[in-house]
């Protein structure tokens, strides 16, 4: 179920600022309080897909510790797409809540 929403979760993780792959997966783990404990590599196909769709951009950087890293940033189109996905998710989750709660009334 998570797979269909991974792109939006990655976009949301980058909303706070640019990050590299390891930091993104750590952010997802922390934001979900460990619920989304994905194999770490699964984030890379999503990053590549989002970059191809121009929802993310990336660049190699060399931080002070000397290791070269590819850092991803959300683009304006990515922010807009995230907003749309949040709205769609809000409608969907509300409908599921209503359907699940309906049996208790």
């Amino acid at each position: 179920m998570l797979k269909g929403h991974l792109d939006a979760i990655v976009l949301a993780a980058l909303e706070a600022g640019p990050a590299h792959g390891y930091a993104i997966i750590e952010a997802i783990r922390q934001r979900s309080a460990g619920t989304f404990d994905l194999p770490e590599g699964t984030v890379y196909p999503a990053l590549h897909r989002l970059e191809q769709a121009s929802l993310l951009s990336s660049a190699w950087t060399t931080p002070p510790n000397g290791r070269r890293r590819r850092v991803y940033s959300i683009t304006r189109a990515g922010s807009a797409a995230l907003g749309e996905r949040r709205k769609a998710w809000g409608r969907f989750s509300q409908a599921v809540d209503t359907a699940l709660e309906g049996g208790r009334a």
Partner: peptide, 20 residues
Amino acid sequence: ERFGLGREIAAGFAVDAVDR
């Protein structure tokens, strides 16, 4: 181990490569 199987990660890229 935490990263996941290389084959599964490559499959994720391969599906996108087919679409492109």
